[in-house]
Each structure stands twice: as C-alpha cells, then as structure tokens.
Amino acid sequence: MSADPNARTASFPSPPGGGRRGSRALVYLVPALVAAAVAVGLGVYGKVHDPTGTAFNLAGFSSPGAVKSWLATGAFFFALIQLLSALAMYGRLPGVRAPSWTGALHRWSGRIAFLLAVPVAVHCLYAFGYQTYSTRVMWHSLLGCFFFGAFSAKMLLLRAERIPGWLLPVIGGLVFTVLTALWLTSALWFFRTTGVTT
C-alpha cells in the first residue's frame, strides 16, 4: 500500500505556496508537538500533583467510580459509532452505501465521546494522579495520557491539507484502540469488581 500523492483531504484547492517544504513539515510537526506536549503535560501533572483522593460527585450516582464508569461507557459507545461511521465513509462496510449525513454523525459522535471522556480524565488526574502500583493501573495511566495527545493530533491533522490518505484512518484507529484499552482497564474492571451499579 503506497500513499497516493494526489490524495486530497480537503475539497477545496489548496492555496498557492501550500506545498513548500517548510510548511509541509509544519503540517506534521505542529500536531506531533502538540500531542507530545498534551500527553507529557498530563502525565507530569498527574505525577507531580498531590492526589486528593476526592472530587465532587454527580447526583444520582453511588460513587465517583460509578459516575466515571458510566461516562467512560458512554464515551466508548460513541467511539463505536466513530468506528462504524468512519468505515462507512471509507466504503469499508460491505453492502453499506454511506448516507450523506455520515460525516456529521462522525463529527458529532466524536465530539460527544471526547466531552464525555474529559470529566473522567479530570477526576482521574485530580483525585488519583499518575500511578503505577499495578499492571492495570500503569497501563491505564500511560494510555490515558497518550489518548488525549493522540486525540489532539487527530483534531489538528483534520485541518491539514494534502496529508496522505492513510494517515487519518491510522490515527483515528489508534485513538479508538487506546480508548478501548482505557475502558477495559477502568470501567470494565469497575463493573466486574463492584458489580454493575449506578
């Protein structure tokens, strides 16, 4: 599989001069640097900040763990919509012709998933911090920081013109995979340990 040099991710013509070497590098450098800064920044905050062990709860839930598990489950649900709508847009769902609203579905399910994941991450970092005391917790901490970095990179790359056509699916798939791993190491663990409670 080779990158099609004529592949466009934008439907409008790129402005003249957009193909200069310097700005070509910036197209990748800025998202990569932002992603690294976000991931490392979250990790450092989680490590340096003294975990409080507490944070505010939402009404109607028995514990912050339950709130977070359900928010994460919601985010994972919308991430599944992300996967399906992306596959449809790229014509990879056998027998499915993507309707014209697939793009909107993809954008809004992604936004909802992201906004559901943010409170969970805030609670994790504020109350628990970056921890490594078990394999599950270590992977969860690591991937949690990585997720928001990768997501930032995906968002910034969406704005870029003339990037290889395989790049967005690869980054999107990465973001989805990491979110799945995060859900498995937190919400699924919570539901298995304490039962499916609200």
């Binding site: 599989m1 080779s2 990158a3 099609d4 592949a7 466009r8 991710t9 934008a10 439907s11 409008f12 847009m89 790229y90 014509g91 990879r92 993507a98 014209s100 697939t102 793009g103 909107a104 954008r107 992604g110 936004r111 992201f114 995906k154 968002m155 910034l156 969406l158 704005r159 290889p164 056509g165 395989w166 699916p169």
Partner: peptide, 25 residues
C-alpha cells in the same frame, strides 16, 4: 477502495467549519 483514497467530496463540510471545527472541539 484503497485506503489512500481521500473522502468522497460530499462528506466535506463547508470550508469554515472544516477548518475550525476540530479546534472548537
């Protein structure tokens, strides 16, 4: 279709949203 193929054009939103939408997110 090969993965290298770009989105069909009809999935693209107007230019302004396309450029700023991810930033707003």
């Amino acid at each position: 279709r090969p993965w290298t193929r770009a989105f069909p054009i009809r999935f693209h939103c107007p230019v302004a949203t396309k450029r700023s939408g991810p930033l707003y997110t």
